[in-house]
């Protein structure tokens, strides 16, 4: 659940998002969140995949549209 909470705050709290970019450990500690190193790595990769090259956010519909008939 913690990862979900961190993602929610990243998406709704600009100050927290800025702190996470600058110093993730301190940002997480200040909010009282505990993420393992592995979870931080997953989140980092998720963030990388969730941004277009122009900096705009990838939407759910964009992700889902890639998996039409994915099988």
């Amino acid at each position: 659940m913690t990862l979900a909470q961190v993602v929610y705050h990243l998406s709704n709290d600009a100050d927290f998002a800025d702190q996470m970019r600058a110093n993730p450990e301190a940002a997480l500690a200040e909010k009282g969140f505990m993420l393992s190193k592995e979870e931080q790595a997953f989140l980092s990769r998720g963030l990388h995949r969730g941004i277009h090259t122009d900096g705009s956010k990838v939407s759910m519909n964009e992700v889902a549209s890639l998996y039409v008939g994915w099988r």
């Binding site: 929610y8 963030l47 969730g50 992700v63």
Partner: peptide
Amino acid sequence: CGATLFLLTEME
């Protein structure tokens, strides 16, 4: 609410 980021993170 960040559902897209959450889904991408869990996929990773």
